[in-house]
Nucleic acid binder design. Structure first.
Lengths: 169, 169
DNA sequence: TCAGATAGTGAACCAGGTTGTCTATCTGTG
DNA sequence: CACAGATAGACAACCTGGTTCACTATCTGA
């Protein structure tokens, strides 16, 4: 990742950070900065065992619940991997499983009160952080930034597929 | 990660994607879209065994080379992890190690011709993709976006620390 | 009715991190 | 000049969170 002189001058004087490299780097850093802040604040607010990505998982589960296979599809991982994630979240008390009354194969995964609490708090914290961005950038610039990102990213499918490009298998 | 109705309407009618959630999601998706494109094109141009993040590693190594410990610091991982990464890259023929003549403890890690080739091509591809973004968004908007991202991210230290927040350890 | 699709689970495996420990080497200070 | 302490690299054991393969239970459509 990263480069010595991304922000400014490098001892060499040469262009240490070609402009094209800057964009992905900053996108990732921005994501990181934002997520870190939310993660830290969420830990302060009673959810110290949440992982940075769990908020997205909870949002994917949603208020109506889902199943391991659906969650896997949404997250872009195998159903087994989704199942493992659910196992962990279940042990932490964030979700619970119930057999689907209409389909004995399926197990509905739903948020517990604890899980809902974390989701609600995450959303509020995200809002706060976004407000801080609006303060720094100006509301117009932030809206423009969000609009531009929307334009440049596929609108509907949100298969992040983190593992695939990060190296995990 | 992600949510069913990020882009648009959800069957429920409820706000499926609180505005605060949208920002990190889009940042990550944008990063992903960009990296995927570069990665795919790089594979086409003779580097099929490159991992999406390798480009950043190569840039961190830089034209003058580095050491495992320095690389680890720059990447925000342990020196052992950096060493393993270098092992892999060495086997793929992208880097090579030489003992530092001035310090027998250190092993200078430098890019091979193959590594330099991949770095040069990456940079060019990044430029191309950036140009595409400029076409879509307009040069001004893209510059504004980059400027805003720069404002909201720490300027000098680029410790991405991917593993820490992704869950790896 | 029954072949085929789908849900969930377990097992074996892998990648890429972590920490702890060890040796070799350099460096600053008494 | 010697030596305590810092640093570089490597090895081992371990962890997390992915993967695929294989299997059973259940649903569905022809």
């Amino acid at each position: 990742m990263a480069a010595s002189g991304a922000g400014g001058a490098d001892a060499d004087g040469a262009a240490a950070e070609p402009p094209g490299f800057e964009l992905p780097l900053r996108l990732l850093m921005a994501f990181r900065v934002l997520i870190d802040e939310v993660h830290a604040e969420l830990a302060r607010q009673g959810h110290p065992d949440m992982r940075p990505m769990h908020g997205f998982v909870f949002q994917a589960i949603g208020p109506h619940g889902t199943t391991a296979a659906d969650l896997g599809r949404l997250l872009g991982v195998s159903k087994q991997a989704a199942g493992k994630t659910i196992d962990g979240l279940e042990q932490l008390g964030y979700v619970e499983r119930h057999t689907d009354p209409n389909d004995a194969r399926r197990k509905l995964v739903g948020l517990t009160a604890h899980g809902v609490d974390s989701l609600v708090k995450s959303a509020a914290i995200f809002e706060d952080v976004r407000a801080k961005w609006a303060d720094r950038l100006g509301a117009d610039r932030l809206r423009a930034l969000e609009e531009d990102l929307r334009v440049m990213t596929p609108g509907d499918t949100i298969h992040l597929d983190m593992p695939a490009w990060f190296g995990g298998g």
